[in-house]
Design a protein around this nucleic acid. Structure first.
Length: 484
RNA sequence: CGGGGCGUAGCGUAGUUUGGUUAGCGCGCCUGCUUUGGGAGCAGGAGGUCGGAGGUUCAAAUCCUCUCGCCCCGACCA
């Protein structure tokens, strides 16, 4: 019997030696997704889609709890709409897919396949909003969007992806700002509580913000290869789109005013985040809250015990089915050891082993995916043992990720050290910045690191800029990292 | 979009430099028997337009041209 992980058969690349290949192996071998016949597109397979469905359900609840309702807007947007907001066009033009022909006829007005829906939603809001009594408008949509990317990676960047985009309108600037920050907090809690992913929250620099936004807030997570992943964004749009799409209302003071807007979104990219934050040498580890299968029952059935063990396993299944997402793997063509490896690769949080010895003793063996720890529990308190263990795995994954993030966040004031960290272990660098676009650009040029966010509570710093060495009243301590 | 690499059975690959029988091997798959607490064993069997299209040649996986896709490193983005 293998006592440590080195002795387990490896069917995926080593995470520590070849992270990119490891990531791909996990996605393909765990059957999360596969390549589609169209360049840059992917098929999300049932197991990967199961994670998305759970994630979507939990997030949707949080949106409903904050007063939002779902709606659906069209996939096609008149080409002219996109061109109305100058920054917006400039930001998205290079990656927009156009429809210019239907059947045998050229379209009178070419259509774009939505890269995001600010414009078409803005157009509709202009029709719907007349009075301050119509505000706020709090709408979310779950949809697919298309961005013709040059370099694609499964889940992290594909030409088409699934996401949600919230689009809200408010009577005042303050209310919109409050909404953008409220949704940022919704994302932060969702990531930490449901996905077990610790995050930084903050706002983007001018260079990094959304095309058309006044302010972009974000949640950033650190992957275990030391690169940061933008996990979600919440934009304060000000009146930029309101002015372009003429979204006006008559206020209490009888004045015609433009609404104040926000938009916010997360995508299937989060699944990539789950893989890169929680995965290990053995494969994926799915946080229990979003795991399609939380408990996998592996019956061990040497003859002549097939019938008794299987009956006991089915009994266990019936009981656990009431408190968890459980499956039983009674396939005869695979050995127990084979199944152990397979379900670990797929990242199922708890494996339940039941064999002749357990049946006789009135017990089962539970094995947690995060630590590999095995415990034998009596049948009597099976439900509570499993429920507690699921919570414990959820917490264990978060704690491990949080510790990794803390250990890989470097507070620095010296640029040489900055460069050395970026060249070696990477991770997050917390450093003073004078606030100038030139220093930000130069650091990116020289180290590939970008400013991931300016922390929300950042106060102007009199520390000298890590790049130019100058003090500035507009400077802050900010987080740098190489990003996905 | 630049630089590099790779496409041979479901997966991983040998063969390509130097063209020459029926394209070889491992895993997986099918059948049977024995197995089952960390990827079981034996025996038999099926599976290939060598990414695609042109070309050179008596003869092409192998040489030439074009093309498609994927991976890695950069530039651009969720």
């Amino acid at each position: 019997m293998a006592e440590n992980s080195q002795e387990f058969v490896q069917h995926i690349a080593s995470k520590s030696e070849n992270f990119s290949q490891w990531y791909l192996d996990v996605v393909l071998r765990a059957e999360l997704a596969d390549y589609a016949p169209v360049r840059g597109c992917m098929v999300i397979r049932p197991y990967g889609y199961g994670i998305w469905e759970n994630l979507k359900g939990l997030l949707d609840k949080r949106f409903k709890a904050t007063g939002h309702k779902n709606a659906y807007f069209p996939l096609f947007i008149p080409g002219s709409f996109l061109e109305k907001e100058a920054e917006h066009v400039e930001g998205f033009a290079p990656e927009v897919a156009w429809v210019t022909r239907a059947g045998n006829e050229d379209l009178a007005e070419p259509l774009v396949v939505r890269p995001t829906s600010e414009t078409i939603i803005g157009h509709m809001y202009a029709k719907w909003i007349k009075s301050w009594r119509d505000l706020p408008v709090l709408i979310n949509q779950w949809a697919n969007v298309v961005r013709w990317e040059k370099t694609t990676r499964l889940f992290l960047r594909t030409s088409e992806f699934l996401w949600q985009e919230g689009h809200t309108c408010h009577r005042t600037k303050e209310e919109a700002e409050e909404e953008a920050l409220k949704m940022l907090e919704v994302y932060r809690r969702f990531l930490t509580e449901d996905l077990a992913i610790p995050v930084l929250t903050g706002k983007k620099t001018e260079r990094e913000k959304f095309a058309g936004a006044v302010t972009t807030y974000c949640v950033e997570a650190l992957m275990t290869d030391g690169r940061a992943l933008q996990a979600g964004t919440s934009h304060d749009l000000g009146q930029n789109f309101a002015k372009v799409f003429d979204i006006t209302f008559l206020d209490k003071d009888n004045q015609l005013k433009y609404v104040w807007q926000t938009s916010w979104g997360v995508s299937t990219r989060l699944i990539g985040g789950i893989i890169m934050v929680h995965g290990d040498e053995r494969g994926l580890a799915v946080p229990p809250r979003v795991a399609p299968t939380q408990v996998i029952i592996v019956p061990i059935m040497p003859p002549p015990h097939e019938e008794t063990v299987l009956a006991a396993a089915r009994d266990v299944f019936e009981r656990l089915d009431k408190v968890s997402r459980v499956e039983i793997d009674a396939r005869e063509e695979f050995s127990p050891g084979w199944k152990f490896n397979e379900w670990e690769l797929k990242g199922v949080p708890i494996r339940l082993e039941i064999g002749p010895r357990d049946v006789k003793a009135g017990k089962v063996v539970l094995v947690r995916r995060d630590t590999g720890e095995k415990i034998s529990v009596p049948m009597d308190n099976l439900e509570s043992a499993v429920t507690d263990l699921l919570n414990s795995v959820q917490e264990g994954l978060y704690a491990r990720a949080k510790q990794f993030m803390d250990e890989n966040t470097h507070t620095l004031v010296d640029y040489e050290e900055f460069k050395a960290v970026m060249e070696n272990k990477r991770g997050l660098i917390y450093a003073p910045w004078c606030g100038s676009d030139e220093c930000e650009a130069a650091i990116k040029e020289e180290t590939a690191a970008t400013i991931r966010c300016i922390p929300l509570d950042a106060k102007p710093s009199d520390e000298k800029c890590i790049y130019c060495g100058k003090s500035s009243t507009s400077g802050y301590w900010v987080y740098f990292a190489k990003a996905y």
